[in-house]
Design a protein around this nucleic acid. Sequence first.
DNA 1: AAAATAGGCAAGTAGTCACTTGCCTGTCAA
DNA 2: TTGACAGGCAAGTGACTACTTGCCTATTTT
Lengths: 93, 93
Amino acid sequence: MADIFKALADGTRRALLDELLERDQQTLFELCSRLAMKHDLTPTRQAVSQHLDVLQQAGLVVAERRGRYKFHTINTAPLAQIAERWPTRKAGS
Amino acid sequence: MADIFKALADGTRRALLDELLERDQQTLFELCSRLAMKHDLTPTRQAVSQHLDVLQQAGLVVAERRGRYKFHTINTAPLAQIAERWPTRKAGS
DNA sequence: AAAATAGGCAAGTAGTCACTTGCCTGTCAA
DNA sequence: TTGACAGGCAAGTGACTACTTGCCTATTTT
């Protein structure tokens, strides 16, 4: 569970999730160029790769290798735990 | 919005939110002893105070000073933004 | 008034983390 | 088969951050 929050703590990783939500099955290079275009983020390829590793370890991203390419997909399921942990309090409860 | 994720990135701060969800209007000393009792966390009073500052800056905790005491209250409202940002994808959308 | 209690301020430290650099592996096209 | 392309590994660096230490202010209590 701690991995999820660690993963979300970084702005670049949140931007990656935003991009993957718009378009699934993106490769490392595609995500790099999209970060630069739409978010004015220009980290190196290795930096983005490391971010994707963190997101994968948190279960927020799933990667699948096909030949020379590696396609990344978002998985929003773990985020549900956040809202469940600190639910909105009802008056008098 | 970045402040919310930064605040949630630390385990001690998440434990503080857990405690405040169980019982509102707790003071700094109360929270310190509860961290030690229930979570096996033994940071100093100053460390906990700094954590509460971070939570306050993120809007997750509201503090009110009455005389010698300062009472802390949880505010779960900002957490709703998380689920809204990366909603569960429907098949084919 | 004096001691005790609740909390605040500020500097220093150690560990973590994002990022880069340099080189290597695997896959496909010409 | 050779060059180009997609990605991986690993060490090093700088900034950030959680934490402590020491001292201070304010509010009660006796």
